[in-house]
């Protein structure tokens, strides 16, 4: 089952969450897309550690380090994601932007209870494609906002208003396919 096909499922229940899917190191990390305000080149980061875009300044943070993920390092595909809600904004580097994907709520799984540590604050859950899995970063943790229960409810959207395969015109990103993410050998 590909994620494109999961969109057809989405139309049945009419509720899904749109994610920006990225790569950080070997991990596929997804962010609720409603708080994505832009994607810029790494050169946009000023010497003062701020990214200013559309007259708004975003504090730059090392999200890979915060997530304890080993980034591949800067490459031609490295991008800076501008993420914000109300007055709170942060920017962070990702190794690659895969694109946007709408995921049916029922296909989003919480972290299994076997995970008992601080990762429960950082990662809300995951969704899976045929060959890979995207971990959902907690947007409240990303922005250092107070955590809240059922955080993803805030981002639910009714996909009946959107056609399958439709892209976000503002960001002009393709619909992501996670097939591009290789499954690693760990554990």
């Amino acid at each position: 089952m590909g994620l494109r096909r999961s969109q057809a499922v989405t139309l049945i229940s009419g509720e899904a969450i749109r994610f920006l899917v990225t790569l950080i190191g070997r991990s596929s990390i997804a962010f609720p897309a409603q708080w994505v305000r832009g994607i810029v080149m790494p050169t946009a980061v000023g010497g003062d550690g701020l990214v200013t875009w559309a007259n708004v300044s975003y504090e730059h943070s090392d999200l890979a380090e915060r997530l304890k993920l080993a980034s591949h390092g800067r490459s031609a595909e490295t991008r800076v994601v501008l993420y914000g809600h109300d007055d709170q904004g942060k920017s962070f580097e990702v190794d690659k932007v895969l694109g946007l994907v709408d995921v049916e709520r029922t296909l989003i799984h919480p972290l299994p209870p076997h995970f008992r540590g601080g990762e429960r604050d950082r990662v809300l859950g995951f969704f899976a494609d045929k060959d890979s899995v995207a971990l959902i970063a907690n947007p409240f943790w990303v922005l250092d906002l107070p955590n809240r229960k059922q955080a993803l409810d805030l981002f639910a959207l009714r996909l009946s208003a959107h056609g399958p395969g439709e892209t976000d015109v503002r960001l002009q990103l393709p619909v992501a396919r996670l097939d591009a993410v290789a499954v690693g050998q760990v554990g």
């Binding site: 089952m1 070997r26 991990s27 596929s28 997530l67 304890k68 993920l69 799984h109 972290l111 299994p112 076997h114 995970f115 008992r116 540590g117 601080g118 990762e119 950082r122 990662v123 995951f126 899976a128 060959d131 890979s132 899995v133 971990l135 499954v183 690693g184 050998q185 760990v186 554990g187």
Partner: peptide, 24 residues
Amino acid sequence: GAIPVPSETPFVTSLVRQQEGCLP
């Protein structure tokens, strides 16, 4: 093959695909 999860739980640091879901 396992998918790494940035985890602080001792020895539980990845997921593995199984059928339609994932197992820790």
